[in-house]
Amino acid sequence: MLVKDCMTRHPIMISPNIPVTEAEKIMSENRIRHLPVVGDGKRLRGLFTRQLLSLKPAEMSSLNVWEITRFLSNLKVEDLMLKAQDVVTITSDRTIERAAKILAERKIGCLPVVEDDNVVIGILSETDLLSAFQEMLGLPAEGVRVTMRMPDKSGEFNKLASVMMEHGWGVMGIGSFPSPRNPGFYDIVVKIPRVTIDEVTEALSQVPDQSISDIRECV
């Protein structure tokens, strides 16, 4: 999975010289939180987010009600936006885990995806990553979801795979995590379609050195 496979192509974008009130309207009407600000040729000029709308009370307290209105109506997107040099971007051929790491480390909500000379071709937000995560574990389809705990050694996954191959089972979602609070172990989550819990329990409990730590039928 690369960024280009899970980003939102053709995101809604705005130009820098529109009023902030207009940008707010676009965000709330379309229920989105991030708006790339682009100039000619879809070149990234900045990023406008919900957070930027929370103006500091201190700035406003000295203004009376008329001045507030005037202040707000004159405020342009380019006055408030995060400037292009401060925006973290990504290219479409990076992996999604790398993108997730950037989002988590910097505590930001989205990455504009650019190519050539800062031309915006899409946007990758937390939501996009979360839906990729669901699909990775096979969410939309029904099946048996089993978590196998196995030692962190090479050849362990092969044991599991060969049992599944024997039974001719398919895999609709798979994930591997270092086992929480169990150093030296890995938890492999596998979702298998068109089987029953009993069948799976019976077959997988035979796998040497491994244990079923969780099994359930779900969509």
Binding site: S15, G41, K42
Partner: peptide, 21 residues
């Protein structure tokens, strides 16, 4: 178009939109 009303936009804005999107 993309959540923004394009009726009544000025020539310059429309030109950019047409060329780019």
């Amino acid at each position: 178009f993309q959540g923004q009303d394009i009726v009544g936009k000025t020539g310059e804005e429309l030109r950019r939109l047409r060329g780019d999107q």
